[in-house]
C-alpha cells in the first residue's frame, strides 16, 4: 500500500514539475504577452494541480481537503486572472499582430467604429450583424 502510494506521488510530482518547467519555457519563448498567457494559465495550473494531488495522496487524510481547496482556488482563479490580463494586454497593444492569423475583435471594432469602453466590455451603440469573413458559416 505504501509502495503504491509512493509511486503515485512520484509520478504526479514529476509530471507536475515537468509541466511547470514547460510552462516556464513557454513563458520565455512565446513572443507576445497573450501567447505567454497560455503558458502561464494552462501549463502552470496543470502542473500545480498534479503536485497538489500528489501531496494530497501522500499526506494524512485530514489535509487532503485543504490541498484540494488550494487546487480549486487555482483552477477557478487562473482563468479569471488570465482573462483580465488578456483584456488589458489587448487594450494596451501587447498583441503581436504579425503573428495573428485573424483578429475578429479588431474587425468588429473597426466595423463598430466604437473603441473599447473604459471599464467593462465593449460598448456597442447599435446591433451588429454577422462577420462577412467569418469562417464559421
Amino acid at each position: 500500500m505504501t509502495v503504491l502510494r509512493d509511486v503515485v506521488t512520484a509520478v504526479l510530482f514529476l509530471t507536475g514539475a515537468c509541466f511547470c518547467l514547460l510552462g516556464a519555457v513557454g513563458l520565455l519563448r512565446f513572443r507576445d504577452t497573450v501567447s505567454r498567457l497560455h503558458a502561464a494559465s494552462k501549463a502552470q495550473t496543470l502542473g500545480l494541480l498534479l503536485i497538489l494531488v500528489g501531496a494530497a495522496v501522500h499526506r494524512p487524510l485530514g489535509e487532503a481537503p485543504v490541498l484540494l481547496l488550494v487546487a480549486l482556488f487555482q483552477l477557478f482563479n487562473a482563468p479569471i486572472t488570465s482573462q483580465i490580463v488578456g483584456r488589458t494586454a489587448y487594450r494596451t497593444h501587447a498583441v503581436d499582430r504579425r503573428r495573428l492569423f485573424v483578429d475578429e475583435l479588431a474587425d468588429r471594432l473597426a466595423r463598430d467604429g466604437t473603441p473599447l469602453h473604459e471599464q467593462g466590455g465593449l460598448t456597442p451603440d447599435k446591433e451588429e450583424g454577422g462577420n462577412p469573413d467569418d469562417t464559421d458559416r
Partner: peptide, 26 residues
C-alpha cells in the same frame, strides 16, 4: 518587456512557490 509580462511572471513564481511548498511539506 511590459508590466503585464512581469505581473504574469510573478503570478507564475507564486504558483511555483505553492508547488514547492507542497513538495516540501510532503
Amino acid at each position: 518587456p511590459r508590466a503585464l509580462d512581469r505581473i504574469m511572471a510573478l503570478d507564475v513564481v507564486v504558483t511555483m512557490v505553492i508547488a514547492g511548498t507542497a513538495v516540501g511539506m510532503t
